[in-house]
């Protein structure tokens, strides 16, 4: 469904992405793991044009787009097919939970208001916020805000949702509620790319795991392969550090 090819990106001469390629099939849940600074966020941002890649292309439903020099129209087309969940939620501060979800429907996709509100309410119900439609972000906890963020993402029925460390800004006791929603989406066959440090999510919910380090993909495979038989020494080191709480099976 989506093929991303050879994405490169430098910041002031510092090469952060050194040619990343990734194929995403429909219903895939791709977990991207990797140490801090390895370029995971930058990669996600390049896919959605929040950052302009220096090189690379994306083929989305057979349509090829150059990530380094896409037209406004091409960018808009890809943004309409994708959704993004941010590490720090980035809910629209001047909009209620409901309005946060309807915004992309009414304004960007021209869905009639009544219908948009129906979709948004269903989305908020699904993430367990049926009591919070009219709350502003400043009145919601981090976990609630992130669930609104996720509702805002899937309500527009995108072909893929990109998650950038959706739980890492949350207090430990709030992580579970957000991961729960994500696992539910995964089970329903939502196509997702998830940058995360939550090994349990990668192990249990991901269909595919990608390990990045220093701007390159070091190893990728099915979740089972990845956690039970990591091939690269670099991967083993990483897993050892993160999984020492678990009974891992290397």
């Amino acid at each position: 469904m989506i093929t991303i090819d050879n994405v490169k990106k430098s910041f002031q001469g510092n090469e952060v992405l050194k040619g990343i390629s990734l194929t995403i099939e429909k219903n895939d849940v791709v977990a991207i793991l990797g140490p801090s600074g390895s370029g995971k966020t930058t990669f996600l941002r390049c896919i959605n044009f929040l950052e302009k890649a220096d090189e690379g292309k994306i083929v989305f439903d057979g349509i090829e787009t150059d990530l380094s020099k896409a037209s406004k129209k091409e960018i808009a087309a890809i943004r309409k097919k994708t959704a993004f969940v941010f590490q720090n939620y980035n809910l629209f501060q001047n909009k209620t939970a409901l309005e946060n979800v309807t915004e992309g429907l009414i304004i960007a996709r021209k869905v009639p208001k009544a219908e948009a509100e129906k979709i948004a309410k269903e989305a908020l119900d699904k993430v367990g916020l049926s009591e919070r439609y009219d709350y502003y972000p400043s009145q919601l906890s981090g976990g609630q805000q992130q669930r609104v963020g996720i509702a805002r993402a899937f309500a527009v029925n995108p072909e893929v949702i990109l998650f950038d460390e959706p739980t890492s800004a949350l207090d430990p006791e709030l992580i579970g509620e957000v991961l729960g929603v994500m696992k539910k989406l995964a089970k329903e066959g939502t196509t997702m790319v998830v940058v995360t440090h939550e090994m349990s999510f990668a192990r249990d919910a991901a269909t595919k795991v990608v390990f990045m380090a220093d701007g390159k993909i070091v190893e990728e495979g099915t979740s089972k392969e990845f956690f039970t038989h990591p091939k690269e020494e670099r991967t083993r080191q990483f897993l050892r550090r993160y999984l020492n709480d678990y009974d891992y099976l290397i």
Binding site: N90, E103, G104, A108, V156
Partner: peptide, 19 residues
């Protein structure tokens, strides 16, 4: 992040500013 979120939900620059 407010502008970025607006872009990711599909708003264009003008809509992001105005709304």
């Amino acid at each position: 992040g407010q502008k970025e979120a607006a872009y990711t939900v599909g708003l264009n620059a003008f809509q992001a500013y105005r709304r």
